[in-house]
Simulated scan of single mutants.
Amino acid sequence: MRFDIITLFPELFAPFLASGVTRRAYASGQVQVQLWNPRDYAEGMYRRVDDRPFGGGPGMVMLAEPLARCLAAIRAARHEEEGARAPVVLFSPIGKPLNQAQVEHWAASSGAILLCGRYEGIDQRFIDAHVDVQISLGDFVLSGGEIAAMALLDAVARLQPGVLHDAQSHECDSFSQALDGLLDCPHYTRPEAWAGRTVPAVLLSGHHAEIERWRRTQRLSLTARHRPDLIAAARAAGRLSAADEAVLAKNQQENAADLL
């Protein structure tokens, strides 16, 4: 798959693409990343890519024309045919929050063109004409879309075959379908005792069925406590068994007793 990134700061991506376990996806070409600076497509001596907003107000707005020329160059480089164009993705507060289901969708796609906004934003006419999808990382504001683009790339890259040491590692991640969309359970490693705290005995028992039951119980309990919306979604999708519901009912009773 191929991701073309439109950014005024391509230098931000160099250490990201060469670091961590996901670098394997970029080095192998499983996830191809091409960086494009719209300043290279601006006109005039100063290569301006922004201007003051009509109607007044603080900040600057990214110009539509350099972005349009940059996008045209990307589409030419991708040798796209009509009807098979890569979607243009803008990282924006009005987009749907990024979640694991979206990540899995992009991980199975052929890629996209990622547009990283800066300043007060992008001329709305370019957005109306060219942007297909808008994505948000959450209800907060970043200085630009580059961090959001890196978040999407990292989440997609780690799902590619051979990128993680254990091919099944990502299947046990929080929010994954293999965990029915629940949060993952706590994890422990050596030493068995640390700072007066010990590893749960069941994890040292070697009894795999009991260990899996403990992990499922922990996932249910943690999710119910911290993200009850995920429990509701799993229940609505028919992913919770009678045993799961018994665990949740017991937790609810214990929590109610603690409040008395």
Rank of each mutant, 00 (worst) to 15 (best):
85 R>E: 15
148 A>F: 12
61 V>I: 14
139 D>I: 07
73 A>D: 09
165 H>D: 09
133 V>K: 06
156 V>S: 02
60 M>S: 01
113 I>A: 01
55 G>A: 13
37 N>L: 09
96 K>C: 08
60 M>W: 05
168 Q>S: 13
147 I>M: 15
77 A>R: 14
105 H>K: 13
119 Y>A: 01
37 N>Y: 12
87 P>W: 10
166 D>W: 08
167 A>Q: 15
105 H>P: 01
129 A>M: 04
130 H>N: 12
115 L>G: 00
166 D>K: 10
41 Y>E: 09
166 D>F: 07
101 A>Y: 03
104 E>T: 07
167 A>G: 10
91 F>I: 02
128 D>G: 08
78 R>K: 02
114 L>N: 00
140 F>G: 02
52 R>H: 12
45 M>W: 13
109 S>T: 07
139 D>K: 11
154 D>H: 06
80 E>N: 06
107 A>D: 00
158 R>E: 04
98 L>S: 11
44 G>S: 08
127 I>F: 07
137 L>Y: 08
63 L>Q: 15
67 L>C: 11
77 A>K: 08
96 K>H: 12
64 A>K: 13
43 E>A: 15
104 E>F: 02
117 G>P: 02
112 A>Y: 03
130 H>M: 08
54 F>P: 02
119 Y>G: 04
95 G>C: 05
71 L>Q: 03
48 R>Y: 13
78 R>W: 00
126 F>S: 00
123 D>H: 09
95 G>R: 13
166 D>L: 01
133 V>N: 00
167 A>V: 13
43 E>K: 11
154 D>V: 12
152 L>T: 03
131 V>W: 12
65 E>K: 13
121 G>P: 01
72 A>F: 03
116 C>Y: 00
61 V>W: 03
79 H>Y: 00
46 Y>Q: 14
59 G>M: 07
159 L>H: 08
149 A>E: 03
83 G>L: 14
71 L>I: 14
74 I>Q: 07
123 D>N: 10
83 G>V: 11
122 I>W: 10
40 D>Q: 14
108 A>H: 06
53 P>A: 12
73 A>T: 08
89 V>R: 02
75 R>T: 04
45 M>V: 14
65 E>L: 14
49 V>F: 03
152 L>A: 03
141 V>D: 10
67 L>T: 11
85 R>Y: 04
69 R>C: 04
131 V>A: 07
105 H>E: 11
123 D>K: 08
151 A>T: 15
157 A>C: 12
61 V>Q: 02
78 R>D: 01
101 A>E: 13
60 M>L: 10
95 G>N: 12
62 M>F: 06
115 L>H: 00
60 M>H: 03
106 W>Q: 01
96 K>S: 11
49 V>G: 03
126 F>G: 01
138 G>N: 10
41 Y>H: 15
